[in-house]
Design a protein around this nucleic acid. Sequence first.
DNA 1: CGAGTCATTGATGAACTTCAAAGGGAGTGG
DNA 2: CCACTCCCTTTGAAGTTCATCAATGACTCG
Lengths: 243, 243
Amino acid sequence: MSCAEPKRCHHNQLVNCGDCRLGPLCLPIALNTAEIDQLDDIVKRGRPLGKGEHLFRQAEAFGAVYAVRSGSFKAYSTSDDGTEQVTGFYLPGEILGMDGISSLKHCSSAVALETSTVCEIPFGRLEELSSQLPSLQRRFFQIMGNEITKDQQMLTLLGKNSAEERVASLLLSISSRNHHRNLSPTRFRLSMSRAEIGNYMGLTVETVSRVFSRLQKQEVIGVDNREVEILDMAKLKSVANVT
Amino acid sequence: MSCAEPKRCHHNQLVNCGDCRLGPLCLPIALNTAEIDQLDDIVKRGRPLGKGEHLFRQAEAFGAVYAVRSGSFKAYSTSDDGTEQVTGFYLPGEILGMDGISSLKHCSSAVALETSTVCEIPFGRLEELSSQLPSLQRRFFQIMGNEITKDQQMLTLLGKNSAEERVASLLLSISSRNHHRNLSPTRFRLSMSRAEIGNYMGLTVETVSRVFSRLQKQEVIGVDNREVEILDMAKLKSVANVT
DNA sequence: CGAGTCATTGATGAACTTCAAAGGGAGTGG
DNA sequence: CCACTCCCTTTGAAGTTCATCAATGACTCG
């Protein structure tokens, strides 16, 4: 993708928080113009990361949280025995890196699943600014609360639900997050592999693949490699066990 | 338990944050004496809750977080179809109720597993005070970060680990939390039922019971109903797959 | 003391994993 | 630009673990 039209390019480093089309999804919600400018001052916009590049690694010192501007990331933690557990996928407008807040060390790693850009928000300065701007403090509490709620929903999913329910839930989650970003909720490209989906959902690659095949045979979804189309949203929701 | 000795009774409502023996585990960490007094002013100490009484219920308006002072709580969420998922157990010194911060509605319920007391911390006033006391703001960010980290470790456990690993991990978690509170890390009474453990760990009652029996037969633990003794800590850790 | 909940144990079966093999796609280097 | 390679994906067959069903025993609390 070329960046001939800076204003519209997703990887453009120059757009500030006030102009960012992700603003309504990201940290600035509920801030007024002056407050957004203050937030903007502490945000660092980095160069794009290529697929496979790390944003941070487990055990590194924690210094900042990151807002995804374009692309997508996978967060995962590595156990002593070397096995990995995917703890989340992050799409544009979402905040990652909060795992390091408690111990000041990251307890997970984050890697780009495709060419991606982020806004880096140094945590120390975010804390300072939060003290001065109650709406920013509230917003950040809210974002952390969201992460907690999301993780607890994942616990329910992993504890109780079948393979089909898990995979269907993931597709619905991505669909809904795309919808919020004004992208198609029914057609999208998965930036993660079957193995990564399986790891995240507590399943093997083979099981994920089989679920995809079954859902396709039932004409609930259409799948072509990583391209997914949701053909029957109602049925997909019933498979996922949500209303 | 009678409260003839108010200073030492766990259910005593009069002890303030500065004198509370749980202080070093709870919110006040990292606050100085004057700051603790300010925190103390917003904390409400309630009457004891009996076993089975709810602290808050799913879908209720969120107004406060709670620090456990004595006893223990179970947090759980209920799906549309009526099934419940336990999302956590909370012991003295731990904070619960943060699930409501993002949407201002509780998305889980909390029930006392035995006679228990809590300190209620109205969230609005906590936010205000956090703006004024950077160390309190930092501490609360840290507590929320802890909750995130804990939930993500649970995700790994549910996604990858066998029944034995899950149950062993829970026992080790309780052991270590008891240890921090200067209680025996090797002998304790479980305040939750096998069904609640199973629900939390994504297992059935029967499986939990069988794991307990197997661990007892291998002389890793001793179990008499809800009384547990860890006989071989090293072996329990190896069963749980931790170092 | 009795009723009901909670815990244990056994037998059976289903869901998912593991092992195995072969068929695409994307990217690279000749 | 094509061919090669590697990784990702799909599909099949066999094996495990845990859930389900069922029955009995133990504890707790009115």
